[in-house]
């Protein structure tokens, strides 16, 4: 993401050099380029999505090999891993199991969480194509995208999740 700003704006924000001198100033300067390996956040508008792509067909064998031992066949869940597909209507009760299909509001969250946290025993070992493929597999499993649709940085943020509009901001004044 570009963060270049006119110098005048920064002068207003941070004050003069004299004001800066009043703080300890013990942080080491680092460039965004040197933060890349840690900068894994994906925003719902797609900001942060890497190059690469994948389809549900490519994701299916990866799921069997690396995910199904906890999440069950076709994401049906097990004691060790959440259910990922299907799910009852959300009006079924306040304890209704939340799945990607019935609850999640943003498709980008699927990519972000797989890439940062999965597989549970070996996080951040999947390459970006594998993450796109698993994301496509899970979205197709939930019948949100067709089996053959390619997921990439452009298409993924455009996927509208069924429950996108199912949320109420609890305390808007706190945002």
């Amino acid at each position: 993401m570009s963060t270049l700003k006119p110098l005048a704006v920064w002068a207003l924000l941070v004050g003069s050099g004299a004001a800066l001198a009043q703080t300890p100033g013990l942080g080491a300067r680092i460039s965004e380029a040197d933060i890349t390996a840690w900068d894994i956040s994906i925003l719902p508008d797609g900001t942060g999505l890497p190059a690469g792509s994948g389809t549900a067909a490519q994701g299916a064998p990866i799921f069997v090999a690396k995910c199904a031992m906890c999440h069950g066949e076709a994401g049906k869940g097990s004691p060790a891993g959440n259910i990922l597909a299907g799910g009852a209507p959300l009006t079924s009760g306040i304890e209704t199991t939340k799945t990607i299909g019935n609850f999640w509001g943003y498709s980008t969250t699927v990519f972000d969480f797989i890439r940062r946290a999965m597989p549970f025993q070996q996080p951040r070992t999947l390459n970006d194509n594998e993450v796109y493929a698993l994301t496509a597999y899970l979205l197709a499993l939930n019948k949100i995208i067709p089996e053959n649709e390619v997921m990439n940085a452009k298409t993924l943020p455009q996927v509208k999740m069924p429950n996108r509009d199912g949320f109420i901001i609890r305390f808007p004044e706190r945002i």
Partner: peptide
């Protein structure tokens, strides 16, 4: 950032389902 990331924990785990089928998001307090 200029927008929330809608992370797993804020848009799934810590969003609270209501009897209506809607859910609270960003409860915070």
């Amino acid at each position: 950032v200029d927008q929330p990331a809608m992370t797993y924990y804020e848009t799934r785990t810590y969003s609270q389902l209501l009897p209506s089928g809607k859910a609270f998001r960003f409860y915070f307090l």
